[in-house]
C-alpha cells in the first residue's frame, strides 16, 4: 500500500511539474521526452476482408530520450476498416447455406514499445525513424441482417515508421507531427467462410507533439 501511495505521490508531482512547465511556456511537457497524439489514415493491403481505407483511428505515443538521438517509449493506437459486401450465397457450416449482404469490419488495437532515432536535435524540423513492437488485438466482424458474427484475435505487431516533427515557435516544444508507417500483425481469424491470415497496413499520421 505504501508503494502505491508513494507512486501516486510521485505521479502527482510529475503531473504538477508538467503543468507548471506548460503553463510557463517552458521547453517541453516531459524534459527529454515527447508525447504524440495523432489522427491516422490507414490502408489495409494484404487482406480482402475489410480493405476499404479509412480515417477512423488514433495513435498515442510517448517516449524518453535515453541518448540525445535515441528515445524509447510506449504507444497505443486503434483503427477500424470496413467494407460492404454485396448480396451473395455462402456456406455457413457444412450443412447450411446463407444468402445475404454484409458489412465487414476489422478493428485493430496494437500497443507496446517504441524506439525512435532522431536525425536532428533542437531544430525546427526533427526528422526521425522509429520501430514499434507489441501485441495486436483485432476483432473481425461481419454484420448482416440484425446479426453480427465475429472473432476476437491476438497477434504480434511490428511497425516501422518515418516522420518529422515541426516546431514552429523557437524554444517552445509544441509541434506538429507527420509520419508515414507500415505495419504487419500476425492475427489470424475466421468469420463465416472468410479467413484472415495476417494484417498488413500502411498509412499516415497527423497530430500534435508535446
Amino acid at each position: 500500500m505504501k508503494t502505491i501511495k508513494y507512486i501516486s505521490v510521485r505521479a502527482a508531482l510529475v503531473a504538477v511539474a508538467c503543468l507548471l512547465g506548460i503553463a510557463s511556456g517552458k521547453a517541453q511537457l516531459i524534459p527529454n521526452g515527447y508525447l504524440n497524439v495523432d489522427w491516422q489514415y490507414n490502408v489495409p493491403w494484404n487482406d480482402d476482408f475489410a480493405e476499404k481505407s479509412s480515417g477512423w483511428g488514433m495513435n498515442f505515443e510517448g517516449g524518453y530520450y535515453v541518448l540525445p538521438e535515441l528515445a524509447v517509449g510506449a504507444f497505443i493506437s486503434y483503427h477500424t476498416n470496413n467494407k460492404y459486401v454485396p448480396r451473395q450465397t455462402l456456406p455457413n457450416g457444412n450443412q447450411s447455406t446463407m444468402t445475404t449482404d454484409q458489412q465487414h469490419s476489422i478493428f485493430q488495437l496494437p500497443f507496446g514499445v517504441v524506439g525512435r532515432y532522431r536525425f536532428l536535435q533542437n531544430s525546427m524540423f526533427e526528422p526521425y525513424a522509429a520501430l514499434k513492437l507489441g501485441p495486436n488485438y483485432a476483432k473481425m466482424s461481419s454484420y448482416y441482417y440484425v446479426l453480427e458474427t465475429y472473432e476476437k484475435t491476438w497477434g504480434f505487431y511490428f511497425s516501422p515508421e518515418i516522420g518529422v516533427t515541426f516546431f514552429p515557435v523557437e524554444g517552445y516544444r509544441l509541434g506538429i507531427h507527420l509520419s508515414l508507417y507500415y505495419s504487419y500483425a500476425t492475427n489470424k481469424g475466421h468469420v463465416l467462410h472468410y479467413s484472415v491470415d495476417g494484417l498488413g497496413n500502411f498509412g499516415f499520421r497527423v497530430g500534435l507533439s508535446f
Binding site: Y78, T80, Q103, H104, F107
Partner: peptide, 10 residues
C-alpha cells in the same frame, strides 16, 4: 474507439 459500420447501408 471502434467505428461500427453503418448497417443502414445494408
Amino acid at each position: 474507439c471502434q467505428k461500427d459500420p453503418d448497417t443502414d447501408d445494408l
